[in-house]
Amino acid sequence: MLYLSTISWLQEGPFALYRWNSLKEDLPLFFHAFLYTIGISLGALALAFVLGIFFGILSATKNKGAVFLSRIYVEFFQNTPLLIQIFFIYYGLPLINIVLPVYLIGILCVGIYHGAYIAEVVRSGIGSVPRGQSEAAASQGFSYWETMFYVVLPQAWRMMLPPLTNQLVNLIKNTSTIAIISGADIMFTANSWSSMNLNYVPAFAFAGILYFILCFPLAKWARHMEEKNKKAYSR
């Protein structure tokens, strides 16, 4: 009977309290992993934004070559698994004597992968701005890129914000794939720490919480901005 009592359940088995205590002791390890994930995410985000805006604008031009180039980029990276791209770089590049640090591979692969999605968001955002806006800018002497940055993109931004935040949240979660090439991020730390002491439940529950802490405020903030933007241009 004692077996089924609450006390024994807390004392032994996968949920046992001592496993959580051990997590508490090794908290600095997880804190370091948390910062590592934030670092990778920021790097990948910056790269994804640059690529996404660049290719998104390219695919909105009338130049057939530019559109074709950006289609290749978008379709290739959207339609192959991120994991394969990571393996390809991790195992492939050393064969031609290029050895990149793991964090850089993480930033490159996740950034390029999500850049493809952001390019699509940017393309449809640009498409949502009436043509008269860019015509007016052109008639005032703005170049194509100036028209984009001063007139079209600021207006497309409203349309782009909700899907962009989706991408950002997905990007943060997808940085966890670098655990598979020993990336020292939250996921890898949880996995390697718990494989030593079998504290799987606290490790992955806590890892989940850490990702949640990063992603939830972003999603919340985006919803707030979305509401605020509805009232924009009419102050």
Binding site: P130, G132, Q133, E135, A136, A137, S139, V151, P154, Q155, A232, Y233
Partner: peptide, 11 residues
């Protein structure tokens, strides 16, 4: 140029 649909910058 002045357009039929004004085309003022909305933002």
């Amino acid at each position: 140029m002045v357009f039929q649909n004004f085309n003022l910058y909305a933002h």
